[in-house]
């Protein structure tokens, strides 16, 4: 099979994300890239743990003063659900149903935007209510860098999925763009997994430890 073939529901392969050599390469290369990203976030987590609650003086807010679990819970639910909806999108991609794939990707993007909105609100809240800033302490720098790196990944992922949707809205699925949708959804899952760790290490451990 090659990327430019015109396919129908009947001839659409079971694994369109790796049915050409280019697609196989993309699939594997992206998994390896995510391996590198894992080490990147591991380094950021280590830095955060080393600098947690490290502030210059006693009047700075610490982790236990800052976090608000209900808000974080809502954000977590939005992001976890968006991972589920992206799975639905990939299910329809595998069934050669471009319309429904677009629908579920659209919902994924909306949920992601919701998450991002909450994060912006949260950061704003910390800065204005607690004077917990990027530049105010080592704790602040480490917190905003770790969570901000994740937020930047969410933003990039949203832009990526949106661009793919707009580009392919009219022309439907083929073996050239199916792997692109697939790796974008992999990226989205990865962002989700990282958030699970942030939720645990930053927020839960910040509240109890």
């Amino acid at each position: 099979m090659h990327a430019e073939e015109k396919l129908t529901y009947e001839t659409w392969p079971a694994e369109p994300e790796k049915s050409t050599l280019e697609a196989k390469n993309k699939f594997l290369g992206f998994w390896l890239f995510l391996g590198g990203e894992t080490v990147l976030f591991a380094s950021l987590f280590a830095t955060y743990l080393a600098l947690k609650d490290k502030v210059p003086s006693a009047d700075h807010a610490l982790a236990k003063d800052l976090f608000d679990l209900p808000l974080t819970f809502v954000a977590t639910m939005l992001l976890l659900t968006s991972s589920l909806t992206s799975v639905y999108a990939m299910y329809h991609m595998k069934n050669f149903n471009s319309q429904k794939m677009m629908l579920w990707l659209g919902i994924t993007v909306l949920l992601g935007l919701g998450f991002l909105g909450l994060e912006v609100y949260e950061f704003n809240h910390y800065v204005h209510e607690y004077h917990h800033k990027f530049t105010s302490s080592a704790f602040g720098s480490a917190f905003y860098t770790l969570v901000g790196f994740h937020g930047a990944h969410v933003t990039f992922g949203l832009g990526w999925i949106l661009a793919l949707m707009i580009r392919n809205y009219k022309r439907g699925l083929n073996l050239y763009n199916a792997p692109k949708f697939y790796v974008a959804s992999l990226y989205w899952h990865f962002i989700d997994v990282v958030w699970v760790f942030i939720f645990t290490v930053v927020y839960l451990m910040g509240m109890v430890g």
């Binding site: 990147l40 830095t47 600098l51 080592a138 602040g140 720098s141 860098t145």
Partner: peptide, 25 residues
């Protein structure tokens, strides 16, 4: 990449990863 990013933030964008007075290490 992370080490260089932290150094970049410290030197150019005012963060405190390596500024010991502000809790850095």
């Amino acid at each position: 990449t992370v080490g260089l990013t932290l150094m970049m933030f410290d030197r150019m964008f005012g963060s405190n990863f390596f500024i010991t007075e502000n809790g850095g290490n």
